[in-house]
Amino acid sequence: MTETLGIAGSGVIATGLAACAARTGGHVLWARSEDSADRARVVIAKVCERLGDSHVAANVQVTTDLAEMSHASFLVEAIAEDLALKSEILGRLGKLARTDAVITSTTSSLCIESLAAASGRPECFSGLHVFNPVPKMRLVEVAFPAKATTDTRRRVHELCIALDKEAVETPAVPGFVVNGLLFPFLFNAVEYLDRTGLAPETIDACMQLGAGHPMGPITLLDYIGLDVCVAIGDALGLEVPHRLRSLVVEGATGKKARRGLYPAAHYST
């Protein structure tokens, strides 16, 4: 791969992307704190090991100094799905980036034009929506602001090929294709759960066995994280089920908290 990645973030998307890129050469991942950096190193090493390339984890430099990103040719913002936070980081990246660098965001629901403007470099900006778990999911939704150059578009598509991903260019609208269609369905499943009193397992089994879904909607919501789902729903202007907001307030955010729409007992085994 000809690009050198600089990834801003230390969560599952950032570390998954870093692990996928590790086999292609040297890259940089930025974390906000030393604790986050330590956790990111552990996760990247584990993912690389699962991919059968444990030795390549050393190709990813994990740092807490954002200035280390200035050498990268391709910058990826991959922090929490919050417009203010993303805009702040993108603005900093735009100021330190090489003049020839492409700047991207892994947003799944926010306005591409707004993020591009925040970077100060809309001509070299792109949405780069990768899916979790990054090593397994081949789809990348790419979306461009109106000012994006032909060269920017080419390099984004070439990066996806180098990472063995399938890039699909989508309209630059919040939610793109997948989340724009998926979240109304997921929220409807929660409302159906409340309306009928069915067990989560029953709804999931029906959609898996009857509709061929690899994962039922209730399990998927817990897997994504209910806090993330609420944020995405708000960004898309959807009516978020009250039950989801209440669970998030309680700290029951799904699988990562070991309780969510499924009770704690479900995650105790």
Rank of each mutant, 00 (worst) to 15 (best):
residue 73 S to E: 01
residue 34 E to H: 07
residue 13 I to N: 13
residue 72 A to Q: 00
residue 17 L to K: 03
residue 35 D to W: 02
residue 42 V to M: 07
residue 65 D to F: 04
residue 77 E to R: 09
residue 28 V to E: 08
residue 62 V to F: 13
residue 80 A to H: 07
residue 28 V to Q: 14
residue 77 E to D: 05
residue 69 M to N: 10
residue 43 V to A: 03
residue 85 L to V: 08
residue 47 V to Q: 13
residue 58 A to C: 10
residue 77 E to H: 05
residue 74 F to M: 13
residue 65 D to S: 12
residue 27 H to R: 12
residue 57 A to K: 11
residue 49 E to G: 09
residue 71 H to I: 07
residue 85 L to C: 14
residue 15 T to N: 11
residue 82 D to I: 07
residue 14 A to P: 01
residue 41 R to N: 03
residue 26 G to V: 04
residue 49 E to H: 13
residue 40 A to H: 11
residue 54 S to H: 05
residue 81 E to G: 14
residue 26 G to W: 01
residue 83 L to C: 06
residue 41 R to Q: 11
residue 44 I to D: 03
residue 54 S to I: 03
residue 83 L to F: 00
residue 78 A to C: 09
residue 74 F to I: 08
residue 68 E to N: 06
residue 33 S to F: 03
residue 20 C to V: 10
residue 79 I to Q: 11
residue 83 L to D: 09
residue 72 A to N: 02
residue 60 V to I: 15
residue 79 I to C: 07
residue 64 T to Q: 10
residue 49 E to K: 12
residue 76 V to C: 11
residue 31 A to P: 08
residue 24 T to H: 15
residue 31 A to I: 11
residue 65 D to R: 14
residue 26 G to I: 00
residue 37 A to C: 13
residue 24 T to V: 01
residue 18 A to K: 05
residue 45 A to M: 07
residue 52 G to P: 05
residue 14 A to Q: 12
residue 58 A to H: 10
residue 62 V to N: 15
residue 36 S to I: 00
residue 21 A to N: 06
residue 35 D to E: 15
residue 14 A to I: 05
residue 11 G to W: 10
residue 23 R to N: 00
residue 73 S to H: 00
residue 64 T to M: 02
residue 45 A to P: 01
residue 64 T to V: 09
residue 55 H to F: 02
residue 74 F to G: 11
residue 19 A to K: 01
residue 77 E to G: 02
residue 68 E to T: 04
residue 14 A to D: 09
residue 56 V to H: 10
residue 39 R to T: 07
residue 70 S to L: 06
residue 54 S to A: 15
residue 21 A to Q: 11
residue 56 V to A: 15
residue 59 N to E: 03
residue 49 E to Q: 12
residue 41 R to M: 05
residue 84 A to G: 06
residue 38 D to Y: 02
residue 28 V to A: 15
residue 47 V to F: 04
residue 19 A to F: 12
residue 29 L to W: 14
residue 50 R to Q: 06
residue 81 E to D: 08
residue 65 D to I: 04
residue 55 H to W: 00
residue 42 V to D: 13
residue 32 R to G: 08
residue 82 D to P: 04
residue 79 I to F: 01
residue 18 A to H: 01
residue 64 T to N: 13
residue 65 D to W: 08
residue 61 Q to G: 00
residue 41 R to A: 12
residue 29 L to M: 12
residue 60 V to E: 01
residue 19 A to R: 02
residue 54 S to D: 09
residue 85 L to Q: 09
residue 44 I to G: 09
residue 63 T to E: 15
residue 39 R to P: 05
residue 70 S to A: 11
residue 33 S to K: 00
residue 23 R to V: 08
residue 58 A to K: 15
residue 72 A to P: 00
residue 22 A to W: 06
residue 76 V to A: 14
residue 84 A to C: 05
